[in-house]
């Protein structure tokens, strides 16, 4: 038996014995951003294809959550920064090779767009709403005229936001668990699924609920496929990625990942949605809440486990 003992004199806080540089702020932001991206995607999609009348919750109601989600996400990100006074440096630089720079600029576009989208629909939510100032009314007419263009911007940027939350992590070659291009599509799918779940909770229309239960079901199927694919990729890759996969296949994150993310967050809600579509009386809210829970857990577990995975030398 070959033995290897490595002794290191290094004990830098937050780096040793293994990386702990990112805490709750980052996974929380990744969830809030992904959820907002999912909601805005469906709002834009059903507006562009002219189905807004059939999907009132998706197009008009659920987007009201997104400015709040994005603002809380931004606050979480701000809390993560250790040199807070210099945060504006993000917006005096464009670094094409840095996913975080892409993310910062994407948020700069999608946050105002989400506010504008809500402003265009506030009269339907609060019929007595009055903009008071003429210039605000002028702005409203202006954006109403270009609403279709706005919806396209929202559609494209919501996909960028959703996929970037995964790419942010997958760009780190130093953390083998994150270093898989599946993470982008997986986080995008998880965000879309969370968005569909949020719409499902808010919707009052039977037709719309049914539609989003089907959408959610399809996305959960895609997520499960991506997860299987991710582990196949890891196990067929280098030693460090095999070790990374072992964190979830017998290692310390096995129970939390498979139980909270896969079973409670994907398989159980999928079964509940199938039962509901088959006309059994299952409250749709239960499935939707489980999907949101699974979506949160996925981010937390991937962010924490990724920091425990490393190159061995």
């Amino acid at each position: 038996m070959r033995e290897e003992i490595i002794v290191s004199g290094r004990m830098n806080p937050m780096v040793d014995p293994h990386l702990q540089i990112w805490h709750w702020q980052i996974p929380l932001y990744l969830f809030l951003g992904g959820l907002a991206a999912g909601i805005l995607f469906f709002a834009a999609l059903f507006y562009i294809n002219g189905k807004e009348k059939d999907n009132p919750a998706a197009v008009k109601l659920a987007p009201f959550l997104t400015p709040i989600l994005l603002i809380f996400g931004l606050i979480a990100l701000f809390f993560d920064l250790r040199h807070k006074a210099f945060f504006w440096q993000l917006y005096t630089n464009i670094k094409l090779q840095s996913p975080m720079s892409w993310g910062a600029w994407t948020l700069m576009v999608i946050t105002p767009v989400s506010f504008i989208w809500c402003a265009l629909h506030i009269k339907e939510l609060l019929p007595k709403w009055d903009w008071k100032y003429d210039w605000l009314k002028a702005l409203e007419t202006f954006f109403n005229r270009y609403k279709k263009a706005l919806a396209w911007v929202m559609l494209i940027y919501s996909v960028i936001l959703g996929i970037y939350t995964g790419i942010l992590l997958s760009a780190f070659n130093a953390r083998p668990l994150w270093n898989t291009s599946i993470l982008g599509p997986l986080f995008l799918a998880s965000g879309m699924s969370a968005g569909a779940a949020a719409i499902l909770i808010l919707s009052r229309s039977k037709e719309e609920k049914r539609r989003f239960a089907i959408i959610d079901l399809i996305i959960i199927g895609i997520e499960l496929f991506l997860i299987v694919h991710m582990f196949m990729g890891f196990l067929a890759s280098t030693q460090v990625q095999i070790e990374a996969a072992r964190l979830f296949l017998g290692g310390p994150y096995t129970m939390s990942f498979w139980i909270f993310v896969v079973i409670i967050g994907m398989i159980v809600p999928a079964v509940l949605e199938i039962l509901e579509l088959r006309k059994f009386h299952v409250p749709a809210v239960v499935a939707a809440i489980l999907v949101l829970f699974g979506s949160v857990m996925l981010r937390f577990i991937i962010v924490y486990a990724g920091q425990a995975s490393r190159w061995l030398y």
Partner: peptide, 18 residues
Amino acid sequence: CIGCGACIASCPYDARFP
């Protein structure tokens, strides 16, 4: 530097610290 920690996470040698 804004202290975001991206470079710390990106270093396979863990040579950086906050």
